[in-house]
Design a binder for these strands. Structure first.
Lengths: 146, 146
DNA sequence: CTAATATAATTTGATTATCAAAGTATTCAT
DNA sequence: ATGAATACTTTGATAATCAAATTATATTAG
Protein backbone atom coordinates (compact mmCIF):
# COMPACT_ATOMS: atom_id res chain seq x y z
CA UNK A 1 0.00 0.00 0.00
CA UNK A 2 2.84 2.39 0.84
CA UNK A 3 4.43 1.26 -2.38
CA UNK A 4 1.30 2.13 -4.31
CA UNK A 5 1.26 5.56 -2.68
CA UNK A 6 4.78 6.10 -3.94
CA UNK A 7 3.95 5.05 -7.49
CA UNK A 8 0.95 7.36 -7.61
CA UNK A 9 2.97 10.17 -6.07
CA UNK A 10 5.74 9.81 -8.63
CA UNK A 11 3.18 9.81 -11.41
CA UNK A 12 1.60 12.99 -10.05
CA UNK A 13 4.99 14.71 -9.81
CA UNK A 14 5.85 13.78 -13.39
CA UNK A 15 2.47 15.04 -14.58
CA UNK A 16 2.95 18.24 -12.63
CA UNK A 17 6.36 18.90 -14.19
CA UNK A 18 5.32 17.94 -17.70
CA UNK A 19 2.09 19.93 -17.98
CA UNK A 20 3.75 23.33 -17.59
CA UNK A 21 6.50 22.39 -19.97
CA UNK A 22 4.17 21.08 -22.67
CA UNK A 23 1.96 24.13 -22.37
CA UNK A 24 5.08 26.25 -22.78
CA UNK A 25 6.16 24.36 -25.90
CA UNK A 26 2.73 24.61 -27.52
CA UNK A 27 2.73 28.32 -26.72
CA UNK A 28 6.11 28.88 -28.38
CA UNK A 29 4.88 27.19 -31.55
CA UNK A 30 1.66 29.23 -31.64
CA UNK A 31 0.92 32.75 -32.81
CA UNK A 32 1.16 33.88 -29.17
CA UNK A 33 4.87 33.22 -28.81
CA UNK A 34 5.50 36.66 -27.36
CA UNK A 35 3.96 35.39 -24.11
CA UNK A 36 5.60 33.53 -21.25
CA UNK A 37 3.74 30.70 -19.58
CA UNK A 38 3.10 32.87 -16.52
CA UNK A 39 1.65 35.62 -18.64
CA UNK A 40 -0.62 33.06 -20.27
CA UNK A 41 -1.84 31.85 -16.91
CA UNK A 42 -2.52 35.41 -15.86
CA UNK A 43 -4.68 35.83 -18.97
CA UNK A 44 -6.55 32.68 -18.08
CA UNK A 45 -7.14 33.83 -14.53
CA UNK A 46 -8.45 37.17 -15.79
CA UNK A 47 -11.07 35.26 -17.86
CA UNK A 48 -13.12 36.52 -20.77
CA UNK A 49 -15.81 38.81 -19.38
CA UNK A 50 -15.80 38.75 -15.58
CA UNK A 51 -13.77 41.95 -15.20
CA UNK A 52 -12.11 40.83 -12.00
CA UNK A 53 -10.11 43.24 -9.89
CA UNK A 54 -6.33 43.14 -9.56
CA UNK A 55 -6.61 41.88 -5.97
CA UNK A 56 -8.98 39.09 -6.95
CA UNK A 57 -6.69 37.78 -9.66
CA UNK A 58 -3.60 38.18 -7.47
CA UNK A 59 -5.31 36.12 -4.76
CA UNK A 60 -6.30 33.32 -7.14
CA UNK A 61 -2.76 33.07 -8.44
CA UNK A 62 -1.26 33.49 -4.95
CA UNK A 63 0.80 36.48 -6.05
CA UNK A 64 1.28 39.83 -4.33
CA UNK A 65 -0.54 42.73 -5.99
CA UNK A 66 2.80 44.27 -6.87
CA UNK A 67 3.86 41.20 -8.84
CA UNK A 68 0.58 41.16 -10.73
CA UNK A 69 0.88 44.86 -11.53
CA UNK A 70 4.16 44.15 -13.30
CA UNK A 71 2.61 41.30 -15.29
CA UNK A 72 -0.39 43.44 -16.25
CA UNK A 73 1.97 46.20 -17.39
CA UNK A 74 3.64 43.79 -19.79
CA UNK A 75 0.34 42.27 -20.97
CA UNK A 76 -1.08 45.72 -21.60
CA UNK A 77 2.02 46.71 -23.52
CA UNK A 78 1.67 43.57 -25.64
CA UNK A 79 -2.01 44.33 -26.15
CA UNK A 80 -3.63 41.35 -24.45
CA UNK A 81 -5.15 43.05 -21.41
CA UNK A 82 -6.91 46.32 -20.64
CA UNK A 83 -7.24 48.17 -17.36
CA UNK A 84 -10.69 49.58 -16.64
CA UNK A 85 -10.89 52.06 -13.79
CA UNK A 86 -14.05 51.30 -11.78
CA UNK A 87 -16.61 54.08 -11.44
CA UNK A 88 -18.17 52.75 -8.22
CA UNK A 89 -14.84 52.83 -6.44
CA UNK A 90 -12.10 54.70 -8.18
CA UNK A 91 -9.33 52.88 -6.33
CA UNK A 92 -10.29 49.66 -8.09
CA UNK A 93 -8.97 48.48 -11.45
CA UNK A 94 -11.04 45.93 -13.31
CA UNK A 95 -9.28 43.72 -15.81
CA UNK A 96 -10.45 42.84 -19.28
CA UNK A 97 -9.04 40.99 -22.27
CA UNK A 98 -8.57 42.54 -25.70
CA UNK A 99 -9.68 40.63 -28.79
CA UNK A 100 -6.18 39.13 -28.96
CA UNK A 101 -6.39 38.24 -25.27
CA UNK A 102 -9.71 36.47 -25.77
CA UNK A 103 -8.27 34.53 -28.69
CA UNK A 104 -5.43 33.39 -26.46
CA UNK A 105 -7.86 32.48 -23.69
CA UNK A 106 -9.90 30.25 -25.98
CA UNK A 107 -6.83 28.53 -27.37
CA UNK A 108 -5.54 27.64 -23.93
CA UNK A 109 -8.97 26.59 -22.77
CA UNK A 110 -9.27 24.22 -25.73
CA UNK A 111 -5.97 22.61 -24.76
CA UNK A 112 -7.19 22.10 -21.20
CA UNK A 113 -10.45 20.54 -22.35
CA UNK A 114 -8.60 18.15 -24.58
CA UNK A 115 -6.32 17.23 -21.72
CA UNK A 116 -9.25 16.50 -19.40
CA UNK A 117 -11.06 14.47 -22.07
CA UNK A 118 -7.93 12.36 -22.41
CA UNK A 119 -7.65 12.06 -18.64
CA UNK A 120 -11.17 10.58 -18.56
CA UNK A 121 -10.77 8.47 -21.68
CA UNK A 122 -12.47 5.07 -21.55
CA UNK A 123 -13.85 5.69 -18.07
CA UNK A 124 -17.48 4.84 -17.32
CA UNK A 125 -19.93 6.98 -15.37
CA UNK A 126 -19.09 5.34 -12.05
CA UNK A 127 -15.40 5.66 -12.69
CA UNK A 128 -15.76 9.36 -13.40
CA UNK A 129 -17.61 9.70 -10.09
CA UNK A 130 -14.61 8.10 -8.43
CA UNK A 131 -12.31 10.67 -10.01
CA UNK A 132 -14.54 13.47 -8.81
CA UNK A 133 -14.52 12.01 -5.30
CA UNK A 134 -10.71 11.85 -5.27
CA UNK A 135 -10.42 15.42 -6.50
CA UNK A 136 -12.82 16.56 -3.80
CA UNK A 137 -10.68 14.73 -1.25
CA UNK A 138 -7.61 16.56 -2.46
CA UNK A 139 -9.26 19.97 -2.55
CA UNK A 140 -10.52 19.42 0.99
CA UNK A 141 -7.07 18.44 2.17
CA UNK A 142 -5.57 21.51 0.55
CA UNK A 143 -8.25 23.80 1.94
CA UNK A 144 -7.63 22.49 5.47
CA UNK A 145 -4.07 23.70 5.16
CA UNK A 146 -4.80 27.10 3.64
CA UNK B 1 -20.61 15.95 -20.41
CA UNK B 2 -18.81 19.07 -21.64
CA UNK B 3 -19.99 20.72 -18.45
CA UNK B 4 -18.49 17.94 -16.38
CA UNK B 5 -15.22 18.37 -18.27
CA UNK B 6 -15.22 22.02 -17.28
CA UNK B 7 -15.88 21.30 -13.60
CA UNK B 8 -13.09 18.74 -13.47
CA UNK B 9 -10.77 21.09 -15.35
CA UNK B 10 -11.46 23.94 -12.94
CA UNK B 11 -10.84 21.64 -10.01
CA UNK B 12 -7.53 20.54 -11.50
CA UNK B 13 -6.46 24.14 -12.10
CA UNK B 14 -7.30 25.09 -8.51
CA UNK B 15 -5.39 22.08 -7.21
CA UNK B 16 -2.45 22.95 -9.43
CA UNK B 17 -2.32 26.54 -8.15
CA UNK B 18 -2.84 25.61 -4.52
CA UNK B 19 -0.32 22.80 -4.17
CA UNK B 20 2.72 24.97 -4.91
CA UNK B 21 1.45 27.69 -2.65
CA UNK B 22 0.73 25.39 0.29
CA UNK B 23 4.09 23.70 -0.11
CA UNK B 24 5.65 27.14 -0.02
CA UNK B 25 3.78 28.11 3.14
CA UNK B 26 4.74 24.89 4.94
CA UNK B 27 8.32 25.47 3.88
CA UNK B 28 8.37 29.01 5.30
CA UNK B 29 7.14 27.71 8.67
CA UNK B 30 9.71 24.93 8.77
CA UNK B 31 13.38 24.88 9.73
CA UNK B 32 14.21 25.07 6.01
CA UNK B 33 12.87 28.57 5.50
CA UNK B 34 16.04 29.71 3.77
CA UNK B 35 14.88 27.73 0.71
CA UNK B 36 12.56 28.78 -2.09
CA UNK B 37 10.04 26.35 -3.45
CA UNK B 38 12.07 25.90 -6.62
CA UNK B 39 15.18 25.14 -4.64
CA UNK B 40 13.19 22.57 -2.68
CA UNK B 41 12.01 20.90 -5.86
CA UNK B 42 15.57 20.82 -7.15
CA UNK B 43 16.59 18.99 -3.96
CA UNK B 44 13.80 16.51 -4.51
CA UNK B 45 14.82 15.90 -8.10
CA UNK B 46 18.42 15.31 -7.02
CA UNK B 47 17.15 12.57 -4.66
CA UNK B 48 18.97 10.97 -1.74
CA UNK B 49 21.61 8.66 -3.15
CA UNK B 50 21.32 8.40 -6.94
CA UNK B 51 24.08 10.95 -7.66
CA UNK B 52 22.46 12.14 -10.87
CA UNK B 53 24.33 14.39 -13.28
CA UNK B 54 23.51 18.06 -13.79
CA UNK B 55 22.09 17.33 -17.26
CA UNK B 56 19.87 14.55 -15.95
CA UNK B 57 18.31 16.71 -13.28
CA UNK B 58 17.96 19.67 -15.65
CA UNK B 59 16.11 17.44 -18.09
CA UNK B 60 13.70 16.11 -15.47
CA UNK B 61 12.85 19.62 -14.36
CA UNK B 62 12.77 20.92 -17.94
CA UNK B 63 15.38 23.57 -17.19
CA UNK B 64 18.46 24.53 -19.19
CA UNK B 65 21.76 23.38 -17.64
CA UNK B 66 22.68 27.03 -17.05
CA UNK B 67 19.61 27.61 -14.92
CA UNK B 68 20.30 24.54 -12.85
CA UNK B 69 23.94 25.54 -12.36
CA UNK B 70 22.73 28.76 -10.74
CA UNK B 71 20.35 26.87 -8.44
CA UNK B 72 23.05 24.39 -7.48
CA UNK B 73 25.40 27.29 -6.68
CA UNK B 74 22.86 28.64 -4.20
CA UNK B 75 22.09 25.21 -2.74
CA UNK B 76 25.78 24.49 -2.31
CA UNK B 77 26.30 27.86 -0.65
CA UNK B 78 23.42 27.07 1.73
CA UNK B 79 24.90 23.63 2.38
CA UNK B 80 22.14 21.39 1.00
CA UNK B 81 23.91 20.01 -2.06
CA UNK B 82 27.39 18.81 -2.97
CA UNK B 83 29.07 18.60 -6.35
CA UNK B 84 31.05 15.43 -6.99
CA UNK B 85 33.36 15.48 -10.01
CA UNK B 86 33.07 12.14 -11.79
CA UNK B 87 36.27 10.11 -12.22
CA UNK B 88 35.04 8.14 -15.25
CA UNK B 89 34.38 11.28 -17.20
CA UNK B 90 35.84 14.42 -15.76
CA UNK B 91 33.40 16.69 -17.60
CA UNK B 92 30.54 15.29 -15.53
CA UNK B 93 29.36 16.58 -12.17
CA UNK B 94 27.35 14.22 -10.01
CA UNK B 95 25.00 15.71 -7.45
CA UNK B 96 24.55 14.64 -3.86
CA UNK B 97 22.66 15.87 -0.82
CA UNK B 98 24.30 16.86 2.44
CA UNK B 99 22.85 15.65 5.73
CA UNK B 100 20.74 18.81 5.81
CA UNK B 101 19.65 18.19 2.23
CA UNK B 102 18.58 14.66 3.04
CA UNK B 103 16.60 15.91 6.02
CA UNK B 104 14.79 18.34 3.72
CA UNK B 105 14.19 15.61 1.17
CA UNK B 106 12.51 13.38 3.74
CA UNK B 107 10.33 16.18 5.08
CA UNK B 108 9.03 17.06 1.66
CA UNK B 109 8.53 13.43 0.78
CA UNK B 110 6.45 12.95 3.92
CA UNK B 111 4.21 15.84 2.89
CA UNK B 112 3.69 14.29 -0.53
CA UNK B 113 2.82 10.92 0.92
CA UNK B 114 0.28 12.50 3.22
CA UNK B 115 -1.21 14.36 0.30
CA UNK B 116 -1.56 11.19 -1.77
CA UNK B 117 -3.05 9.27 1.17
CA UNK B 118 -5.66 12.01 1.48
CA UNK B 119 -6.24 11.96 -2.26
CA UNK B 120 -7.07 8.24 -2.03
CA UNK B 121 -9.01 8.51 1.22
CA UNK B 122 -12.07 6.24 1.46
CA UNK B 123 -11.44 4.72 -1.96
CA UNK B 124 -11.69 0.95 -2.41
CA UNK B 125 -9.27 -1.25 -4.35
CA UNK B 126 -11.24 -0.94 -7.58
CA UNK B 127 -11.54 2.79 -7.21
CA UNK B 128 -7.80 3.13 -6.77
CA UNK B 129 -7.37 1.11 -9.96
CA UNK B 130 -9.58 3.66 -11.70
CA UNK B 131 -7.35 6.49 -10.48
CA UNK B 132 -4.28 4.68 -11.73
CA UNK B 133 -5.94 4.19 -15.11
CA UNK B 134 -6.79 7.89 -15.39
CA UNK B 135 -3.25 8.90 -14.44
CA UNK B 136 -1.87 6.52 -17.05
CA UNK B 137 -4.21 8.13 -19.61
CA UNK B 138 -2.89 11.53 -18.72
CA UNK B 139 0.77 10.50 -18.80
CA UNK B 140 0.22 8.91 -22.20
CA UNK B 141 -1.42 12.05 -23.51
CA UNK B 142 1.45 14.16 -22.23
CA UNK B 143 4.07 11.82 -23.62
CA UNK B 144 2.46 11.94 -27.07
CA UNK B 145 3.02 15.68 -27.08
CA UNK B 146 6.59 15.64 -25.79
C1' DC C 1 48.12 9.58 -32.96
C1' DT C 2 46.45 13.92 -33.90
C1' DA C 3 42.75 17.10 -35.44
C1' DA C 4 38.04 17.95 -35.80
C1' DT C 5 33.81 17.21 -33.53
C1' DA C 6 30.88 16.39 -29.76
C1' DT C 7 29.51 16.66 -24.99
C1' DA C 8 29.07 18.45 -19.94
C1' DA C 9 29.07 22.05 -17.29
C1' DT C 10 29.68 26.97 -16.46
C1' DT C 11 29.60 31.83 -17.46
C1' DT C 12 27.57 35.95 -19.37
C1' DG C 13 24.08 39.21 -20.46
C1' DA C 14 19.40 40.05 -20.78
C1' DT C 15 14.63 39.65 -19.29
C1' DT C 16 10.91 38.04 -16.35
C1' DA C 17 9.16 36.81 -11.75
C1' DT C 18 8.86 37.61 -7.24
C1' DC C 19 8.49 39.81 -2.58
C1' DA C 20 8.34 43.28 1.17
C1' DA C 21 7.85 47.75 2.16
C1' DA C 22 6.82 52.46 1.02
C1' DG C 23 3.90 55.57 -1.58
C1' DT C 24 -0.51 57.47 -3.76
C1' DA C 25 -5.26 57.90 -4.37
C1' DT C 26 -9.66 56.98 -2.74
C1' DT C 27 -13.25 55.40 0.45
C1' DC C 28 -15.18 54.40 4.97
C1' DA C 29 -16.27 55.14 9.76
C1' DT C 30 -16.82 57.71 13.60
C1' DA D 1 -13.91 66.29 8.86
C1' DT D 2 -10.20 63.49 9.86
C1' DG D 3 -8.03 59.05 10.95
C1' DA D 4 -8.00 54.42 9.50
C1' DA D 5 -8.58 51.21 5.91
C1' DT D 6 -8.33 49.66 1.16
C1' DA D 7 -6.67 49.16 -3.81
C1' DC D 8 -3.29 49.63 -6.56
C1' DT D 9 1.49 51.09 -7.99
C1' DT D 10 6.31 51.92 -7.31
C1' DT D 11 10.83 50.80 -5.66
C1' DG D 12 14.75 48.09 -4.61
C1' DA D 13 16.44 43.68 -4.07
C1' DT D 14 16.97 38.86 -5.35
C1' DA D 15 15.69 34.57 -7.72
C1' DA D 16 14.50 32.29 -12.06
C1' DT D 17 15.02 31.76 -16.56
C1' DC D 18 16.97 31.46 -21.37
C1' DA D 19 20.17 31.63 -25.40
C1' DA D 20 24.61 31.94 -26.69
C1' DA D 21 29.53 31.94 -25.75
C1' DT D 22 33.21 29.63 -23.17
C1' DT D 23 36.04 26.00 -20.97
C1' DA D 24 37.40 21.47 -20.15
C1' DT D 25 37.26 16.88 -21.41
C1' DA D 26 36.02 12.82 -24.54
C1' DT D 27 35.23 10.63 -28.88
C1' DT D 28 35.97 9.76 -33.58
C1' DA D 29 37.75 9.92 -38.30
C1' DG D 30 41.53 9.85 -41.01
Amino acid sequence: MENRTKIINDSLVRIYNDILWIEEKELKKSQFNDLSIKEMHAINAITMYEHKTVSQVAKELHLTPGTLTATIDRLTRKNYVTRIRSNDDRRVIRLGLTKKGRLMFRAHDAFHRMMVRNFLKDLGQDEIKTIEKALRNLELFLRERS
